[in-house]
Amino acid sequence: MQKARSRPAGQEIEQRARRSPRRKLLVGLGRGFGGALIFGLPMLMTMEMWWLGFYMDRFRLALLLILNMPLLILLSHHAGFEETTRWHDDLRDMAVAYAIGVVASAVVLAVFGIVTLAMSADEIVGKVALQSVPASIGALLGRSQLGGSKAEPSQRTERVNYASELFLMAVGALFLSLNVAPTEEMVLISYKMTGWHALALIALSIFLMHAFVYALEFAGSDPSLPPGTPWWSAFLRFTITGYAIAMLISLYALWTFGRTDDAALMPVLMSMVVLAFPAAIGAAAARLIL
């Protein structure tokens, strides 16, 4: 419903913007900064994220920054600043979104007094670089969320379509898990839980994910789930796969933030299950929202 209302408005802005290239660029950049702030602020205002900026393993930080590039390119392909047909358009959108993420993070951290000139270059770069990852994803999504166009799974072939559905789920999972993974509460919750609690949480996560998949099926907006699809088919192909993706993304986020270091398998699994809960919701919701 909401989309139906916002879409004509977005198209109208688009049409006006098309008339002057400079205006079009400014509208696009504005949406990018808006998206970067909406998605980045929760993390910009989390103290664990500031600390991670200077103490986290530099190799893992570099890996996160590098992996963010193909992620942004693929995301741009699905929901970029404009309709992209050629790969170098996606490449340009990636660079612009990344730059917006860096600038937005640097400005906000400087205004908060968290980044000052008295700090070492390593600390400043680390803090800004870490925050630029969620902010740049926000900048790219800003276009689809604020501009009224929707991230669509690729329509080319069945196999590509399924892969891009999984990709959108991974982005949703990454988004919600990045929000909470750096906080101490993630590990604290896992320490308070027993194995039985963890099993209950897995069941709850999968149940809620399937509720989202069912909602999507009900809305009929998904070509992979035509009416009359047996429940177990959608369950195995989307819910279970989505939950596995949420778990892997959670594990990656925990490893990136050093939460798995020197811990035995069981505590790692427990914190993974805890983080997979928001990640699963993010993954399932991504297909509805993005």
Binding site: G195, S233, L265
Partner: peptide, 27 residues
């Protein structure tokens, strides 16, 4: 649905069941 979708679903189910089994064993 493409065969790949069933392969992905089956693999995911195996990973999740293994994890559930491990946690259950510990519990």
């Amino acid at each position: 649905p493409h065969t790949l979708e069933w392969v992905a679903g089956g693999l995911s189910a195996a990973v999740i069941l293994a994890m559930v089994g491990f946690i259950l064993y510990h519990a």
